[in-house]
Simulated assay, not measured.
Amino acid sequence: MMAEQPLNARMVEEEIKVVPTCNGSVKGLAKVVRELMEGERGKQARNKVQQLAAVANKAVQEGGSSYKAMDSLNHQICNWHCS
Rank of each mutant, 00 (worst) to 15 (best):
E14I: 02
N23W: 08
A45K: 06
C78H: 13
K17F: 02
R34C: 09
S66D: 05
M37D: 07
K31D: 14
M2A: 15
K31I: 14
K43L: 12
M11G: 03
E4C: 08
K58L: 11
Q51W: 06
C78I: 14
S83Q: 09
R46W: 03
V33A: 11
N23Y: 03
E15N: 10
V32W: 07
N23R: 04
M11D: 02
E14N: 07
E35D: 14
Q51R: 02
V26I: 11
P6S: 09
I77W: 12
V49L: 15
E14L: 10
H75V: 09
A69S: 00
S66Y: 02
A56D: 12
C82P: 00
N23P: 01
M1A: 14
E14C: 03
Q51T: 12
Q44W: 06
R41K: 15
A56W: 04
N47T: 09
A9K: 07
G64N: 00
S83I: 05
R41A: 14
E15T: 05
A54S: 12
Y67L: 00
M11K: 06
L52S: 01
N79Y: 06
K68Y: 00
L52Y: 10
S66Q: 06
D71N: 03
G63V: 02
E40T: 06
R10S: 05
E4T: 14
E62K: 14
L36Q: 08
C78G: 06
E15Y: 04
G64T: 01
V12Y: 01
W80I: 11
N8C: 04
E35K: 07
G63Y: 01
I16V: 15
E40F: 03
S25G: 06
N57Q: 14
V18L: 15
Y67W: 15
H81K: 06
H75K: 15
H75F: 05
L29V: 05
V60P: 00
Q50I: 11
T21E: 11
A45M: 10
A30W: 07
A9V: 08
A69F: 00
N79E: 12
L29M: 13
L29E: 05
E38Q: 14
V18H: 02
N74V: 02
M2G: 03
M70L: 15
W80D: 07
S66E: 09
G39T: 13
E13W: 07
Y67R: 00
C78D: 11
Q44F: 04
E62V: 15
G63F: 01
A53M: 13
A53D: 07
C82H: 15
Y67P: 00
C22T: 11
R10W: 07
S65H: 00
V49Q: 09
K31F: 12
L29T: 09
K68G: 00
V19A: 09
C22V: 01
A53F: 06
C82Q: 13
P20R: 01
A54H: 07
Q44H: 09
K58E: 15
M37C: 10
R34W: 14
A69C: 01
A53Y: 10
N74M: 08
A9Y: 09
A59E: 01
V18F: 14
A45I: 08
L73M: 08
E35S: 15
Q5S: 03
M70I: 13
V55A: 04
K43I: 08
A3L: 08
G28E: 07
K68M: 02
C78Q: 14
E13D: 05
N74L: 12
V49T: 13
V18R: 01
E35H: 05
Q5R: 12
R41H: 04
